[in-house]
């Protein structure tokens, strides 16, 4: 499912904007239009990515006020960088790269976590637990325990949490996660597998 379709139910604003003829335009085309002075193109871009980026930041920052400030700073960076924007990668990757760097700066400033851990390659020391996807009760419990996963998410290591959020909120692929966070593909893949494994184990324990 395309990302913009999957995100369209996030906000009413997106439904309003989806009626426009250029709703199918790619993020890159919208950014180029905004670069030429089309403010409406930025509204479309913002509507597509506001929710995912907001949650991506908030669920790592863990402070509502600071998270909103970081969220605004990232978008301001987008606005200021519109003149120099070139289509070298997907807009989504570029946007979350800006957010990733801003978060790294924030972590260094607040010493919340060791920012060096973002650059470290994860070592897989234990095998992933077996999947229980075939068990219907597990799925039902996961749906019911939506808030529980957020708690589990907060307990994840920061690199794994970031990889999971990039995958879920940003809709990035593993390769794009590697590009965004500046790590190798294998490292991104391992982070993501660890994140899923821990979340799944946590949900099973909760159940």
């Amino acid at each position: 499912m395309p990302l913009h379709v999957r995100q369209c139910w996030y906000t009413d604003l997106y439904f309003t904007l989806s009626n426009m003829t250029d709703v199918a335009a790619t993020d890159e085309a919208l950014m180029l239009r905004y670069q030429t002075g089309d403010a409406g193109a930025f509204d479309l871009l913002y509507a597509r990515h506001r929710g995912g980026l907001y949650r991506f930041i908030q669920r790592q920052c863990r402070n509502l006020g600071e998270g909103e400030e970081l969220f605004q700073e990232v978008w301001i960076n987008v606005i200021q960088a519109r003149e120099s924007y070139r289509i070298a990668a997907q807009f989504r990757t570029w946007l979350y790269t800006l957010a990733h760097h801003r978060l790294i700066d924030y972590f260094r400033k607040c010493r919340v976590i060791d920012s060096a851990s973002f650059a470290a390659t994860d070592e897989i020391t234990h095998a992933l637990p077996a999947s229980r996807i075939s068990e219907p009760e597990v799925i039902a419990e996961a749906r019911q325990q939506g808030t529980m996963i957020l708690r589990l998410l907060n307990e994840l290591p920061a690199p794994q949490r970031e990889a999971f959020l990039l995958y879920e909120e940003g809709g990035l692929s593993v390769e794009e996660i590697a590009t965004t966070t500046g790590i190798t593909f294998e490292a991104a893949k391992s982070r993501l597998r660890y994140a899923f494994a821990k979340l799944r184990d946590g949900l099973q324990e909760y159940a």
């Binding site: 996030y10 906000t11 506001r50 929710g51 907001y54 949650r55 908030q58 909103e68 969220f71 999947s131 229980r132 996807i133 597990v138 799925i139 996961a142 749906r143 019911q144 325990q145 939506g146 808030t147 529980m148 996963i149 957020l150 998410l153 879920e168 993501l192 597998r193 899923f196 979340l199 799944r200 949900l203």
Partner: peptide
């Protein structure tokens, strides 16, 4: 990850979908 981790993704989507003010 899609199939094995589908319960996690479903649970996450059922979580609080907070949005910017």
């Amino acid at each position: 990850l899609n199939n094995p981790e589908q319960p996690v993704r479903s649970a996450y989507r059922e979580a609080l979908r907070d949005e910017p003010p």
